[in-house]
Amino acid sequence: MKVLHVITGLGIGGAEQQLRLLLRHLPVQHGVVTLTNPGVVAAGIESDGTPVTHLGMAGNRDLGALPRLARIVRQGRYDLVHTHLYRACVYGRLAARLAGVRRVIATEHSLGEAQIEGRPLSAGTRALYLASERLGTSTVAVSPSVARRLADWGVPPARIQVVPNGIETGRFAYDARARRLTRGVLGIPEDAYVVGGVGRLAPGKKFDRLVRAVASVPEARLLLVGDGEHREELLRVARECGAADRVLLAGACEDPPSVASLGPSLPELLSAMDAFVSTSPDETFGLAVVEALAAGLPVLYVACPAIDDLPPDAAPGARRIGESVPELISALRGIRDARLARLPQPAAAHRYDIARSAGQLLSLYDQAVHGTPSPAK
Rank of each mutant, 00 (worst) to 15 (best):
F276V: 02
G228C: 11
D191N: 15
L181P: 07
A250R: 14
D208K: 00
R159D: 07
L201Y: 12
Q161K: 12
L224T: 02
V214I: 13
V211N: 03
L234K: 01
S261L: 10
E283Y: 04
T169E: 04
L297C: 03
L297G: 08
A250Q: 14
A260G: 14
D255Y: 15
D191L: 12
V198M: 10
E168T: 11
G196Q: 11
A295L: 08
G170D: 15
D227W: 09
D255A: 13
P257N: 02
R231F: 08
V247P: 11
Q161E: 10
G296N: 06
G228F: 13
I188L: 15
F276M: 05
A252F: 10
P164V: 05
A213C: 03
S271E: 04
Q161A: 12
S280K: 01
F207M: 13
E283G: 08
A178V: 04
A158K: 12
L297I: 09
P267D: 08
R200G: 13
G199L: 09
E232V: 03
L287F: 13
Q161T: 09
P157T: 12
Y174H: 15
R236M: 05
L210E: 00
A275V: 13
N165M: 09
A213E: 05
C253D: 05
R212A: 13
G197T: 07
G196W: 10
A288E: 09
P156R: 07
G184N: 11
L297Y: 11
L297H: 10
K205V: 00
G296P: 03
V237M: 04
G196A: 01
L248R: 14
G170T: 11
E232G: 03
P156T: 05
R221N: 07
L287G: 06
A272H: 00
P257I: 09
T169P: 02
C253T: 14
P203G: 05
E240P: 03
S261P: 00
A202T: 15
R183E: 04
A288G: 06
L224A: 01
L186N: 08
E232L: 11
T284Q: 06
E283F: 01
V237I: 15
V163G: 00
F276A: 01
R183W: 06
R200D: 09
V198W: 08
P164N: 14
A260W: 15
R171G: 00
T279D: 04
S280A: 11
P157G: 02
E168F: 04
V247N: 08
L262R: 15
A294K: 04
R171M: 11
V162A: 02
A252I: 13
V155H: 01
S216L: 12
P157I: 00
F172S: 06
G296H: 02
V217C: 06
V211L: 06
G154I: 08
P218R: 15
L287S: 06
T279Q: 05
R236F: 11
G251W: 10
P257R: 13
F172H: 06
V198C: 11
R171K: 14
R236K: 12
L262H: 15
S278T: 03
P203Q: 12
Q161M: 10
